[in-house]
Structures are given as structure tokens and as C-alpha cells.
Amino acid sequence: MGELRYEAPDTIEAAVKLLARANGAARVLAGGTDVIVQMETDLIEPELLVDIKKIPQLREITAERGAYRVGAAVSCMELIEHEGFCRAWPGVIDGVKLIGSIQVKGRATMAGNLCNASPAADSVPALIAAGAQVTIAGPNGVRQAPVEAIPVSPGKTSLAKGEIVTSFLFPARPPRSGDAYLRFTPRTEMDIAVVGAGVNLTLDAGGTCTSARVALGAVAPTVLLVKEAAEALIGTRVGEAALDKLAKAASAACRPIDDKRGTKEYRIKVAGVLAGRAARQALERARQS
């Protein structure tokens, strides 16, 4: 067993260097609410932890002409307390609010939620539906990628050795846009999504849906961006027929497994139900925005 080393650099460059040079398993420590649990339960035995919370620009939320940039070390509670962001992206906040308890959210970050690469991560369907991008710093410089490009399978990301997610970029929103995230869990809180559904849509002045993105969690090895479900809404006034089509498309896209948290059959059915409910809520928010 190697010895664990804890480092808390104060620049992105230093963090990248530490991670790139690590011999054994290295982990980024943002909120730590997954990493520390995985260490405690012997799922991982890293030799290096790189705490990124001391890097100032990773702690910032900045608004740039309607667009938002959220640093990778911003905790869920900090984001929930940011009024401007909450107004712009209520659906993303729906997901963020469901990441564990108040205590967990006091530490946990969206970047950690994404990089833990769980198909049931609560913020990820809403992030994908939002069309959010991540900025990645690595030994070969900085790159951008859509959120959905990060997780590749349960527990695995597309990040190369030494790369870290440094921030999320949310595009400026057109008027009459709304998003929502809903999940199903047997308990009201403190649970892992059995199914999650994020919907983001924009209406034209006449109330017709001009663009939509629908993402589903916990129904496949990674969060799914379901084009067919979005297409069911685009060009419609999001009436019952469109919602019905959306629900069917959502269910059809599912490739779930049976596990301790739910059955395949159950997940397929409920994915449609939740996609429909989330779309209704997103619609309501779009109309009010």
C-alpha cells in the first residue's frame, strides 16, 4: 500500500503538474463527498489527493453578458445561494439541490458530481439539457468540451491524465426559456436517483417550442441526451400529444440495468413519466420568464 499525500496548490498550473506527475492513483479533491467516501469504504486507495479549493479562480461564479461561468470548486450551497444563477438556470439548481443533504451540499461541487461519472448524478442531466460546456486544463493546455463528453462509463471520464475540469460555462439564454430537473427516489431526500430527467426548452413569442434538450439519468451507463425526446417537443406548443410522444421517446431511449436501486422495467416506465413532468415544469418556467 502506497502512502497517501495531500496537496493543496493555489494555481491551476500547479494542480495540473501534480496530477500529471503522480506515479500512482491520483484524485482531485473538490468537495470530497465522493472521494472521501470511496476511500473510507476501500473502493479507492489513491496515493495523491490534490485539493483544488485553494485555487481562487475555481471558487468564482461570474456572469458574462447573460452567460455564466461557475468554477469547479464552487460548492452546491454557494451556487444555490447565487440569486442570479438560480433565476437563469432553475432546472440546474433543481438538480444541484438534490445532491445529498445540506451538509453534503456545503462541500460537494457540480464538477465533482460530473467527474465521479455516476449515471445517477443529479446535476448532470440538467447540465446536459442546459447545453453547458466544461473548461478543462491539462498538461497540453486548456480545452473546452460539452458536459456530455465527460462521462464515458460508470466511474470513468474522458479526462486524460493530469487534466482537471476548471469551470462550467452556461450559454446566455434566449427569452422564454425554462429548464427543470426531476428525479424519482423512494425517499424524499438522501437518496440516489432511480431515474432522473432534465428538460430545457425555449419558446417563440407564439408559444411554440423552438429548441429543446432532454437528458435522462440512471437509465444507461452514462447520462443520455435523448434527441428523439427533444424532437417530440420542437415545433409544437408542448401540448398533451407532444408530451406523450416525449414520454414514449424517453422510455424508448433507456438502456437500464436491474440493480439494488430499481428494476429495468421500472426505470423505463418512470423515465417517460418524469420526462413528461419535467417538460411541463420547464414549460411553465419558460412561459413565466
Binding site: T41, R187, T188, M190, K260, R261
Partner: peptide
């Protein structure tokens, strides 16, 4: 074998 997956009622339930 954890309180996460062994679902005892929480206050909001």
C-alpha cells in the same frame, strides 16, 4: 450496507 441504500425514513418523509 449503508444508510444511503438502506432507506430509513428521513425527516421530510
Amino acid at each position: 450496507p449503508s444508510f444511503l441504500d438502506y432507506r430509513m425514513p428521513v425527516a421530510s418523509d
